[in-house]
Simulated scan of single mutants.
Amino acid sequence: MTDSSLTNTVRAWVDGWVVSRGAAEPVAEPWGFTIDVGLPLHTTHHVLTDGGGSAVRKVAGAARTPGRWLKVFEDPEKVLDLLGPDWTPDEPGFLMTAELRHEEPGAVPAGHRLRTWTHGGVTKALVTRDDGAFAARGQIARGGPARPAVVDQIETAPEHRRKGLGSLVMRTLQNAAVEEGATTGVLGGTPDGRALYEALGWRVIAPLVSVYYDPKAP
Protein backbone atom coordinates (compact mmCIF):
# COMPACT_ATOMS: atom_id res chain seq x y z
CA MET A 1 0.00 0.00 0.00
CA THR A 2 1.33 3.43 -0.95
CA ASP A 3 1.73 6.20 1.60
CA SER A 4 -1.18 8.11 0.03
CA SER A 5 -3.43 5.04 0.15
CA LEU A 6 -2.58 4.45 3.79
CA THR A 7 -3.29 8.10 4.60
CA ASN A 8 -6.67 7.87 2.88
CA THR A 9 -7.51 4.68 4.78
CA VAL A 10 -6.49 6.26 8.08
CA ARG A 11 -8.67 9.28 7.30
CA ALA A 12 -11.62 6.99 6.60
CA TRP A 13 -10.99 5.18 9.89
CA VAL A 14 -10.78 8.49 11.78
CA ASP A 15 -13.98 9.83 10.19
CA GLY A 16 -15.97 6.70 11.01
CA TRP A 17 -14.45 6.35 14.49
CA VAL A 18 -15.55 9.83 15.58
CA VAL A 19 -19.11 9.04 14.48
CA SER A 20 -19.03 5.71 16.28
CA ARG A 21 -17.69 7.21 19.51
CA GLY A 22 -19.51 10.55 19.39
CA ALA A 23 -16.20 12.41 19.46
CA ALA A 24 -15.48 15.89 18.09
CA GLU A 25 -14.80 16.41 14.40
CA PRO A 26 -11.14 15.66 13.63
CA VAL A 27 -8.85 18.64 13.20
CA ALA A 28 -6.34 18.29 10.37
CA GLU A 29 -2.71 18.78 11.38
CA PRO A 30 0.49 18.78 9.30
CA TRP A 31 1.26 15.34 10.72
CA GLY A 32 -2.28 13.87 10.90
CA PHE A 33 -5.36 14.58 13.00
CA THR A 34 -6.34 15.68 16.51
CA ILE A 35 -9.57 14.33 17.97
CA ASP A 36 -11.13 15.60 21.20
CA VAL A 37 -12.78 12.59 22.83
CA GLY A 38 -13.83 14.18 26.11
CA LEU A 39 -13.33 11.27 28.53
CA PRO A 40 -11.20 11.53 31.69
CA LEU A 41 -8.64 8.97 30.51
CA HIS A 42 -9.08 9.78 26.82
CA THR A 43 -9.27 13.55 26.58
CA THR A 44 -7.58 13.83 23.19
CA HIS A 45 -6.24 11.45 20.53
CA HIS A 46 -3.48 12.48 18.13
CA VAL A 47 -3.51 10.25 15.03
CA LEU A 48 -0.25 10.46 13.08
CA THR A 49 -0.35 9.68 9.38
CA ASP A 50 3.25 10.88 9.19
CA GLY A 51 4.93 8.39 11.48
CA GLY A 52 8.44 9.77 11.03
CA GLY A 53 10.56 10.21 14.10
CA SER A 54 10.50 13.99 14.04
CA ALA A 55 6.68 14.04 13.89
CA VAL A 56 6.36 11.55 16.76
CA ARG A 57 8.78 13.51 18.94
CA LYS A 58 7.10 16.82 18.12
CA VAL A 59 3.58 15.65 18.93
CA ALA A 60 4.65 13.75 22.03
CA GLY A 61 6.58 16.77 23.29
CA ALA A 62 3.50 18.99 23.00
CA ALA A 63 1.05 16.45 24.42
CA ARG A 64 2.50 15.90 27.87
CA THR A 65 -0.85 15.95 29.65
CA PRO A 66 -2.61 12.95 31.24
CA GLY A 67 -5.37 11.64 29.01
CA ARG A 68 -3.50 12.32 25.75
CA TRP A 69 -3.06 9.41 23.34
CA LEU A 70 -0.90 8.96 20.25
CA LYS A 71 -1.94 6.61 17.43
CA VAL A 72 0.90 5.80 15.04
CA PHE A 73 0.96 3.41 12.07
CA GLU A 74 4.51 2.14 12.44
CA ASP A 75 6.32 -0.83 13.93
CA PRO A 76 5.99 -0.63 17.74
CA GLU A 77 9.75 -0.78 18.31
CA LYS A 78 10.33 2.29 16.14
CA VAL A 79 7.70 4.31 17.98
CA LEU A 80 8.50 3.26 21.53
CA ASP A 81 12.20 3.99 21.04
CA LEU A 82 11.26 7.62 20.35
CA LEU A 83 9.26 8.12 23.53
CA GLY A 84 10.32 8.49 27.14
CA PRO A 85 9.21 6.45 30.17
CA ASP A 86 6.15 8.66 30.73
CA TRP A 87 4.45 7.14 27.68
CA THR A 88 2.76 3.78 28.24
CA PRO A 89 1.88 1.47 25.34
CA ASP A 90 -1.55 -0.08 25.04
CA GLU A 91 -1.85 -3.56 23.53
CA PRO A 92 -0.57 -3.89 19.96
CA GLY A 93 -3.03 -3.13 17.19
CA PHE A 94 -3.56 -3.50 13.46
CA LEU A 95 -5.26 -1.36 10.83
CA MET A 96 -7.32 -3.76 8.71
CA THR A 97 -9.53 -3.48 5.63
CA ALA A 98 -11.93 -5.72 3.71
CA GLU A 99 -14.23 -5.68 0.72
CA LEU A 100 -17.79 -5.87 2.05
CA ARG A 101 -20.55 -8.02 0.61
CA HIS A 102 -23.78 -9.44 1.96
CA GLU A 103 -23.31 -12.79 3.72
CA GLU A 104 -25.58 -15.06 5.69
CA PRO A 105 -24.76 -14.20 9.31
CA GLY A 106 -25.51 -17.68 10.61
CA ALA A 107 -27.99 -18.87 13.18
CA VAL A 108 -28.24 -17.33 16.63
CA PRO A 109 -27.19 -20.06 19.09
CA ALA A 110 -29.92 -21.61 21.19
CA GLY A 111 -30.46 -19.74 24.43
CA HIS A 112 -29.33 -16.41 22.92
CA ARG A 113 -30.95 -13.52 21.08
CA LEU A 114 -29.63 -10.91 18.68
CA ARG A 115 -30.83 -7.29 18.57
CA THR A 116 -29.76 -4.53 16.18
CA TRP A 117 -30.61 -0.83 16.12
CA THR A 118 -29.36 2.35 14.45
CA HIS A 119 -29.07 5.76 16.04
CA GLY A 120 -27.10 8.81 14.96
CA GLY A 121 -25.51 6.99 12.03
CA VAL A 122 -24.25 4.13 14.20
CA THR A 123 -25.63 0.60 13.85
CA LYS A 124 -25.16 -1.63 16.88
CA ALA A 125 -25.52 -5.38 17.27
CA LEU A 126 -26.00 -6.97 20.68
CA VAL A 127 -26.15 -10.65 21.57
CA THR A 128 -27.46 -11.63 24.99
CA ARG A 129 -28.56 -14.82 26.63
CA ASP A 130 -32.28 -15.26 26.92
CA ASP A 131 -32.03 -14.00 30.51
CA GLY A 132 -30.45 -10.74 29.26
CA ALA A 133 -26.85 -11.46 30.28
CA PHE A 134 -24.27 -9.92 27.93
CA ALA A 135 -22.65 -12.22 25.39
CA ALA A 136 -21.26 -10.16 22.47
CA ARG A 137 -21.56 -6.80 20.79
CA GLY A 138 -20.21 -4.48 18.10
CA GLN A 139 -21.04 -1.39 16.08
CA ILE A 140 -20.38 0.15 12.67
CA ALA A 141 -20.43 3.71 11.35
CA ARG A 142 -19.44 5.76 8.31
CA GLY A 143 -17.89 9.19 8.14
CA GLY A 144 -19.91 10.04 5.01
CA PRO A 145 -21.99 8.43 2.23
CA ALA A 146 -18.94 7.70 0.05
CA ARG A 147 -16.68 6.58 2.91
CA PRO A 148 -15.80 3.06 4.02
CA ALA A 149 -17.70 1.59 6.96
CA VAL A 150 -15.75 1.50 10.23
CA VAL A 151 -16.23 -1.48 12.54
CA ASP A 152 -15.75 -0.64 16.20
CA GLN A 153 -15.94 -2.05 19.73
CA ILE A 154 -16.26 -5.73 18.86
CA GLU A 155 -16.39 -7.66 22.11
CA THR A 156 -17.33 -11.15 23.22
CA ALA A 157 -17.63 -12.12 26.89
CA PRO A 158 -14.92 -14.69 27.80
CA GLU A 159 -17.47 -17.35 28.72
CA HIS A 160 -19.18 -16.98 25.34
CA ARG A 161 -16.15 -17.25 23.06
CA ARG A 162 -15.78 -19.98 20.44
CA LYS A 163 -19.53 -20.11 19.90
CA GLY A 164 -19.51 -18.14 16.64
CA LEU A 165 -20.88 -14.98 18.23
CA GLY A 166 -18.05 -12.79 16.97
CA SER A 167 -18.70 -13.90 13.39
CA LEU A 168 -22.44 -13.42 13.89
CA VAL A 169 -21.93 -9.84 15.08
CA MET A 170 -19.41 -9.00 12.35
CA ARG A 171 -21.57 -10.33 9.52
CA THR A 172 -24.67 -8.64 10.91
CA LEU A 173 -22.87 -5.30 10.99
CA GLN A 174 -21.32 -5.87 7.57
CA ASN A 175 -24.73 -6.61 6.06
CA ALA A 176 -26.17 -3.46 7.59
CA ALA A 177 -23.37 -1.39 6.03
CA VAL A 178 -23.78 -3.06 2.63
CA GLU A 179 -27.50 -2.24 2.70
CA GLU A 180 -26.50 1.41 3.19
CA GLY A 181 -24.19 1.28 0.18
CA ALA A 182 -20.79 0.58 1.75
CA THR A 183 -18.41 -1.55 -0.29
CA THR A 184 -15.30 -1.49 1.90
CA GLY A 185 -14.63 -1.63 5.62
CA VAL A 186 -11.89 -0.47 7.97
CA LEU A 187 -11.15 -1.36 11.59
CA GLY A 188 -8.49 -1.07 14.25
CA GLY A 189 -8.01 -4.61 15.53
CA THR A 190 -6.34 -6.17 18.56
CA PRO A 191 -4.33 -9.39 18.77
CA ASP A 192 -7.36 -11.18 20.27
CA GLY A 193 -9.58 -10.15 17.36
CA ARG A 194 -7.12 -10.53 14.50
CA ALA A 195 -7.73 -14.23 13.88
CA LEU A 196 -11.51 -13.66 13.73
CA TYR A 197 -11.18 -10.78 11.30
CA GLU A 198 -8.74 -12.61 9.04
CA ALA A 199 -11.03 -15.64 8.96
CA LEU A 200 -13.77 -13.29 7.69
CA GLY A 201 -11.59 -11.93 4.90
CA TRP A 202 -10.02 -8.87 6.52
CA ARG A 203 -6.34 -8.12 5.94
CA VAL A 204 -3.75 -6.14 7.86
CA ILE A 205 -2.40 -3.10 6.03
CA ALA A 206 -0.39 -1.46 8.83
CA PRO A 207 0.54 -1.88 12.49
CA LEU A 208 -1.29 0.43 14.90
CA VAL A 209 0.63 1.63 17.95
CA SER A 210 -1.38 3.27 20.76
CA VAL A 211 0.42 5.00 23.63
CA TYR A 212 -0.88 7.28 26.35
CA TYR A 213 0.79 9.85 28.56
CA ASP A 214 1.20 8.46 32.06
CA PRO A 215 3.78 10.47 34.00
CA LYS A 216 5.68 8.45 36.54
CA ALA A 217 5.90 9.64 40.13
CA PRO A 218 9.35 11.02 41.02
Rank of each mutant, 00 (worst) to 15 (best):
P89E: 10
R142F: 08
V79P: 03
P89Q: 12
V56Q: 04
V37G: 00
D90S: 15
T88S: 13
R171Y: 05
L82K: 06
L173I: 14
I154M: 10
G121I: 01
Y212M: 09
V72Q: 06
V211D: 04
A136V: 00
T9K: 11
V19S: 13
V18H: 09
G164L: 03
E77L: 12
A195I: 09
V150P: 01
Q153P: 00
L173Y: 06
G22S: 08
A177W: 00
H45C: 06
I35E: 04
T172V: 07
R57E: 13
D192Q: 15
E155V: 00
D15G: 13
A146Y: 02
R147N: 02
K163N: 03
K78F: 09
T190K: 03
I140D: 00
R142G: 00
P215A: 11
D15C: 10
Q139F: 03
G84P: 07
R11L: 15
I35V: 15
P158A: 08
E180A: 09
R115W: 06
A133V: 12
H42I: 03
D130Q: 09
P105T: 10
P26S: 09
H45A: 10
R194C: 04
R64H: 10
L48D: 08
D152V: 02
L41T: 13
H42R: 12
A107S: 05
G164T: 01
A182S: 15
A110N: 07
V47D: 02
T44G: 01
M170Q: 04
D81C: 12
A135V: 02
F73H: 13
T44I: 07
D90A: 14
G201L: 11
G111W: 01
K71V: 15
A135P: 06
D90N: 15
R115E: 14
A107Y: 01
P105N: 13
E99K: 13
L41P: 02
A55Y: 01
P158K: 01
E198Q: 13
E155P: 00
A157M: 00
P109S: 05
W17G: 03
R21T: 14
A125C: 10
T65D: 12
